[in-house]
Design a binder for these strands. Structure first.
Length: 698
DNA sequence: GACTTGTTCTT
DNA sequence: AGAACAAGT
């Protein structure tokens, strides 16, 4: 190594020194990278790098940042208890650079970390591995996040699955079980890190402090708390999950997703414990409880599948998987987008959901489907906007899961929902919220409306509305888009989509050369201003420890009470107490627009609305998959054949999935030649993570 | 017991 | 839309 030992903060004796790089695996238990480091007996340098600029528009939102900060404190305390010095933290615009620096600072000889599967991490980790290897550092990476690595789960022909059901069936019938969870290491051998510089990481700014303090009332990040929550769920709501999961409030759900997202909880431990419960209940003949386990495991399966999909189709967070969807003429209407975010669409269930999301950073899975389906099918807004808003506001924001969810809703999965069938929020309302309690909790304006009308106030007799103190169009909006109008518009849009698709096919077969697709690519619809505010537009300064706010949306500001019990006690009573003032709880930017403007907007929506052709007019040509066989990158095929235990030195590297029956219809996000890097093939990912900027800072 | 008709679910 | 399932003829 080129660094002299005198400059090393760890003392510099010639032993094995291992940097354990924590990311979204903020736990001590069942953490393969940490366990391997502890077992190796060398000195362990636990490290965390905060480099949000790398994530481009998908850098963590306020609530996520709050969670990280809490979780890191918890992790640090745990590590110290085990004998580790301290969690070394670094602030950088480039995690790879920061780690190289840390390796030099500490004289580390090894770097261990656990795998991630989002497109940004796949590329970054691959680069890290190459650069460390070039410096003679040993890199080992591990599976901590999944039951099985994506490349382990393939169909009978050895191809990746393109549908969830067969994927999950295969996971459940693999010839070997997912590894049993590891216990926390008994002792971590620490070098002397007292001189090793750490940066203070700042995850919130002044304006966020108040809101964040409220989060702490409802959530306790940290792996040990995650473990407690897990136990509570397994012994409590799990048994009734199959009966209760339809209810819109969160009493029946596990509330574990933020813990899972940050890796505070090991899915494998989770999986094994649920399976044990299932076995017990099965033996007892408790059919409902057994079914609950099956259903719950399925939701773990969806999480697995989201990583699987992201690995096999790295652009699935920005481009529809089914090629024809790229021609869908999304309606670019920022006003509707705003009304949706504010919970002012005139459809009570949708509005209640959006207000809960804003207020708490949480939404029941069913309601997520309702609001996103409304977004995509009734408003026909670009799905990426909705996904980005979810990303910014959800406490469990997770790029892979959210991409899967939105692709599902958009009809971009071979086994997803059809795009052309509009769900009726009124019917869904009576399904998920039969007594209107959920709506009344989040839309106090409607609190006095009888259940009969609660999900369709526009049908209510004037006398009923008057008695309830509701004046539609002023107190509470009329539907911003009528369902019938939406259906008609959707049909139009779909036929336009098919026409464009056919036209592109014609162009393609008209003798354009194959493979020109990528260069003429039309970028996806830009995010509107409101969604860009969280991106730091300043040129990033290395090591600058600035909070990343250039222009910030007005913060979420309602107390965060996620357990419905808490909610019932505090917020409801507060809401009902003074129904006049509760508007203060409704998210809005600066002010409510005057009524007149709203009427305009409604008319506007029903008349010709501004549209732009979704994406890619010229170039959506599916790459003919000539290279199927040789399409697997060497490192991956090596990995899939030699991967037995956890001790891999293999970093998952994206490689194009070979064609299977379905991938004919899949968009060509994974064009061709295997020898080129993922980045060469994915110009959009360059854009996403500002690759050029990162390269320059090297 | 083979038919209907209705309901729920789909990532 | 279509499959799987339930409950009624």
């Amino acid at each position: 190594m080129s660094v002299s030992s005198s400059s090393m903060c760890g003392g510099g004796e010639t032993g094995m020194r291992i940097v354990v790089w924590f990311r979204r695996d903020l736990r001590v238990e069942d953490n393969p990278a940490l366990a391997a480091a502890a077992r190796a007996g060398g000195e362990v340098v636990p490290a965390y790098v905060w480099s949000p600029e790398e994530d481009g528009p998908y850098h963590p939102g306020r609530v996520s940042r709050w969670w990280i900060s809490q979780s890191l404190q918890h992790l640090d305390a745990s590590l110290r208890r085990l004998g580790a010095g301290k969690l070394v933290t670094r602030r950088s615009t480039d995690a790879v650079v920061a780690l190289l620096q840390l390796v030099r600072d500490t004289g580390a000889t090894h770097v261990y970390f656990n795998h991630l599967y989002d497109p940004i991490s796949l590329v970054r980790d691959h680069r890290l591995k190459e650069m460390l290897a070039a410096e003679g550092i040993v890199v080992q990476s591990f599976n901590a996040d999944l039951l099985y690595e994506p490349w382990e789960v393939v169909d009978d022909e050895g191809q990746p699955f393109t549908m969830f059901a067969p994927f999950w069936n295969r996971c459940l019938s693999m010839p070997y079980d997912p590894p049993a969870p590891l216990l926390p290491p008994k002792k971590i051998n620490s070098g002397n890190l007292s001189m090793c510089p750490s940066d203070d990481l700042i995850f919130e700014d002044e304006s966020e402090r108040g809101s964040n303090a409220l989060l702490a009332r409802a959530w306790t990040p940290g792996w040990q708390n995650a473990d407690k929550a897990l136990t509570a769920f397994l012994n409590g709501p799990l048994a009734d999950y199959s009966v209760n999961r339809k209810k819109a409030d969160s009493a029946s759900t596990s509330l574990l997703s933020p813990h899972l997202h940050f890796g505070e909880l090991s899915v494998r431990k989770f999986f094994h414990l649920v399976r044990m419960k299932q076995l017990v209940w099965s033996n007892e003949g408790n059919h409902a409880a057994e079914e609950s386990c099956t259903l719950f495991l399925r939701s773990i399966g969806l999480r697995e599948y989201s990583r699987y999909l992201s690995f096999n189709h790295p652009s699935s967070h920005e481009r529809p998987l089914l090629a024809h969807l790229r021609f869908f003429p999304w309606v670019v209407d920022e006003w509707h987008f705003k009304l949706w975010r504010q919970g002012r669409t005139g459809y009570p269930l949708v509005d209640a959901g959006m207000r809960e999301l804003w207020a708490t950073g949480w939404l029941h899975d069913r309601i997520r489907v309702v609001v996103s389906s409304f977004f995509v099918k009734v408003l026909q807004l670009p799905w990426r906007w909705g996904m980005k808003y979810f990303w910014d506001t959800l406490l469990d924001a997770d790029l892979e899961s959210d991409a899967l969810g939105w692709q599902y809703i958009t009809g971009s999965l071979p086994d997803g929902r059809e795009l052309d069938r509009i769900d009726n929020p009124q019917f869904e309302g009576y399904k998920f919220d039969p007594h209107g309690e959920y709506v009344r909790r989040w839309i106090p304006e409607l609190a006095r409306l009888p259940t009969e009308w609660i999900h369709h106030p526009w049908d209510a007799p004037v006398s009923v509305l008057q008695a309830a103190g509701i004046e539609l169009g002023s107190n509470y909006p009329l539907p911003i888009v009528e369902l019938d109008a939406a259906k008609a518009r959707l049909q139009e849009a779909l036929s336009e989509m098919w026409q464009l698709e056919a036209a592109s096919r014609a162009t393609m077969s008209n003798g354009m050369e194959e493979g020109l697709g990528d260069s003429s690519e039309v970028p996806p619809i830009e995010f509107p201003q409101e969604l860009q505010m969280e991106v730091d537009r300043q040129p990033a300064q290395a090591m600058a420890n600035v909070p990343m706010t250039a222009r910030r949306r007005q913060d979420q500001m309602v107390p965060t009470m996620t357990s419905s019990l808490n909610r019932a006690e505090t917020e409801v009573s507060a809401d009902l107490g003074n129904s006049e003032d509760t508007r203060a709880q409704v998210p809005f930017h600066a002010h409510f627009e005057p009524r007149v403007e709203r009427q305009d907007a409604i008319q506007n929506a029903e008349g010709p609305a501004p549209r732009i052709n979704g994406v890619h007019q010229n170039n959506i040509f599916q790459q003919p998959q000539h290279h199927r066989r040789e399409a697997v990158a060497p490192s991956v095929s090596e990995a899939s054949s030699s991967w037995t235990g956890r001790e891999g030195a293999v970093v998952p590297v994206w490689s194009p999935p070979a064609a299977s029956g379905h991938s004919e219809t899949f968009a060509a996000d994974e064009a061709d030649v295997s020898s080129r890097s993922y980045l060469d093939r994915h110009p959009q990912s360059h854009r996403l993570m500002n690759w050029s900027q990162l390269s320059q800072s090297l």
